[in-house]
């Protein structure tokens, strides 16, 4: 049968259904192509989400679902000082609870890495050797985050660490300490590491946004009389604004899911006395370390999801 015959056949069959708007063959083809993807998506994304959403309302004996307990897991989790430690928050003293510390990550990490990324992109926009510099900064993002965490341990090591050595060199020897193990400052040391990672990525996004700006726009602004600051404020910033949305949201998502760096530096406890634990660490400990509290693990994971999902949806819907 030739292709032409085949198409004629299709058209005939299609006519006989009497509904020209519905193309059955096409619908079947669509379904066939969707099946593999939807299956994977269902098994590995929708399934677990629904499972934990349901599971968060049940009591658990290790990994076995017991009886329905309503919001009990939720109340218990939010009253847990490991998640939110109200008293310490009031005194601004670590540990403040994984959720608080995680949000502190967001507050510090996201703006700083965004500004640094933009700054470096601007700096590298017309600089000799910008490609090499850009690759070097971006290298941080390509390194597995668990390795970053280990590198941070070396950097902050009291004896061999570069950071402490630097402090000694500039005459601030009294500040030398084991940064990742000092409860009140360790989180900042780790955030700095996170910023190092994210800055490379942000810089790359901003660099491509900057290179997409027609150079004649900048020149036109120059001729119009705008100095470097006005050019940035009036021309460059408005044009890279959409990228800023992406950078900020990606940053928040990345930070809300941060795990490796904290794990490498502080193990599953999230540092001495959980002083820089984050939500990811709490999920891990509740789910896999005795005493296993599967209900709590699900609740914490869902909290992460509830924060991240709307942001992800926003990015996905952006033009």
């Amino acid at each position: 049968m030739s292709l032409r015959d085949h198409i004629d056949g299709l058209e005939g069959g299609h006519d006989s259904t009497g509904d020209p708007a519905f193309d059955r063959e096409k619908a079947i083809a669509l379904a066939v192509f969707l099946v593999p993807g939807m299956t994977l998506f269902g098994i590995f994304s929708v399934g677990p989400i629904v499972y934990s959403a349901v599971g968060s309302f049940f009591s658990w004996d290790a990994f076995t679902m017991q009886s329905f307990v309503g919001l009990d897991n939720w109340f218990r989790t939010f009253r847990d000082p490991l998640i939110v430690h109200w008293e310490n928050i009031r005194q601004y003293r670590f540990p403040m609870g994984a959720l608080t510390q995680n949000l502190l990550w967001v507050v510090l990490h996201v703006p700083i890495s965004t500004l640094l990324g933009l700054g470096m992109a601007l700096l590298f926009a017309d600089l000799r050797g910008r490609r090499i510099l850009r690759s070097m900064v971006f290298l941080g993002f390509t390194v597995p985050t668990i390795v970053i965490g280990l590198v941070l341990l070396f950097v902050y090591d009291p004896q061999a660490g570069v950071f402490n050595e630097l402090l000694r060199v500039v005459g601030q020897g009294q500040l030398v300490r084991n940064w990742t193990q000092s409860p009140q400052v360790a989180i900042y040391a780790l955030v700095a590491g996170g910023i190092w990672v994210q800055t490379g990525f942000n810089m790359l996004l901003y660099s491509s946004a900057l290179s997409a700006i027609d150079p004649s726009l900048i020149e036109s602004a120059k001729v119009d009389g705008a100095g470097p600051y006005r050019r940035f404020r009036d021309i460059i910033w408005p044009l890279v604004k959409p990228v800023t949305a992406v950078v900020v949201i990606m940053g928040i998502i990345w930070v809300m899911r941060v795990f490796d760096i904290v794990y490498a530096a502080g193990g599953t406890a999230g540092g001495p006395n959980h002083s820089y634990s984050v939500l990811g660490i709490e999920v891990y400990r509740a789910a896999f370390e005795p005493p296993i509290d599967y209900g709590k693990a699900m609740v914490v994971a869902l909290v992460q999801l509830l924060i991240v999902a709307p942001l992800a949806a926003y990015i996905a819907r952006m033009n």
Binding site: D214, E219, S220, A221, K222, V223, G225, I235, P238
Partner: peptide
């Protein structure tokens, strides 16, 4: 600098600021 010279330039691709309205574009200088 170009601004000190009091020259105005029209570029081949017009170089209009895409995020500004026509009025804002003209008002910018």
């Amino acid at each position: 600098s170009p601004s000190d010279r009091n020259v105005a330039m029209v570029f081949q691709n017009y170089a209009l600021y895409p995020h500004m309205s026509v009025r804002e574009n003209i008002a910018y200088p």
